[in-house]
Design a protein around this nucleic acid. Structure first.
Lengths: 188, 188
DNA sequence: TTGAGAATGTTGACTAAGCAACAAAGGAGC
DNA sequence: GCTCCTTTGTTGCTTAGTCAACATTCTCAA
């Protein structure tokens, strides 16, 4: 997809960001996002508090960045970032989103509604960009169908991860993805 | 013993030193000391080569520093750094030196004679300081007996770790430590 | 309601780390 | 001998990180 943004940055920048990120993610596993202070993060990262603010405007920006990185890792693991639209890729994308959301819910000590709405936008933006990239060869604008598909995919994943009695993941996805595919296939 | 020197140093300094140290120790486990270049160390540590020279004159100084840290860890693990002379502590010290030397021999991909002579001085200096500390209450100078004991202890450890068919460690030490104790006990 | 303590951002002066370029010394091969 | 290449230290300039101090907002209990 897009070229990796971690090319030839100053090593100190890469190191500091990764220290902050690691610290944040481990804190997220042990307590709720709201109860994490910038001080907590920098203490554990062994980085000065002022340095944090040189990299992120506030802890919400850090959350964004963190979600972005984690989601992108999920996508890259399945090599969905270097391909084009196909039914199979779409199916895998939905699987990826579901698994990612589930992991966030179990891994982070806070499945609260507010938290989820914080990450929702970030994830949808990534899905939107990925789908646009998949349809980059299209002769006509894809904004509308990609928007529809993006929301549908996120909605499916969110729905699944909140279900009391979940069906098998494969079953669920097999049933759902054709409904999304029908809106996209004509642009591939 | 002496107050830890890692009190309130600039965090960047602590971080850099620890990165260099970790990198060096892992390289030492995979290849011989002589074949490790400063470049190798800084590459793995993700630190600039010039930064290395701001901390250490050369790789021999790094080896010293590394041996010092590792040996001190062995001593602190047994709390031998916060006590005074006793037969039992002496026995434990000998055990510590033997185990340390053995670990260096197995852990470092280079049991060469030259390498051992590089670390010998560093270790003996630590033993000397520790024994002096143990006898700090003595009314008379302890330099001579401590010197004798230091060399004897290191010699025993070196001998043991080079033996073809080693006796049980406990047996060996039980037999050996009285010979050292006899020179020290009168100063305790 | 108020007041004490904690968390947030921000600033400016200082210090460490990065970088590129250099001279010099060593090694391996021809 | 000679070259080519690697490693070693060193240097001056740039950039990132640290620190202490400050004003501001938040929170929560007295």
């Amino acid at each position: 997809m897009l070229p990796n943004p971690d090319e030839k940055l100053d090593p100190r920048i890469k190191r500091t960001r990764s220290l902050i990120l690691t610290s944040f993610e481990s804190l997220l596993a042990e307590k709720g996002f709201e109860s994490i202070s910038v001080q907590d993060v920098t203490d554990k990262a062994q980085v000065n508090r002022a340095t944090f603010y040189a990299h992120f405007p506030d802890k919400y920006a850090l959350l964004d960045y963190s979600i972005q990185k984690m989601f992108m890792a999920e996508i890259e693991k399945r090599t969905l970032n270097v391909c084009s639209y196909s039914e199979d890729n779409l199916r895998n994308l939905i699987l990826a989103v579901v698994e990612f959301l589930s992991r966030v819910h179990t891994g982070c000590a806070q499945p609260h509604q507010h938290f989820e709405s914080l990450i929702e936008g970030t994830i949808k933006k990534q899905i939107f960009e990925l789908l646009s990239y998949w349809l980059r060869k299209s002769k006509v604008p894809t904004e509308i169908p990609v928007t529809v598909a993006t929301w549908a995919i996120y909605g499916l994943a969110s729905h699944y991860s909140h279900m009391k009695k979940r069906p098998a993941l494969e079953t669920f996805v097999d049933e759902a993805y054709p409904l999304v595919a029908v809106n996209l296939e004509q642009f591939a």
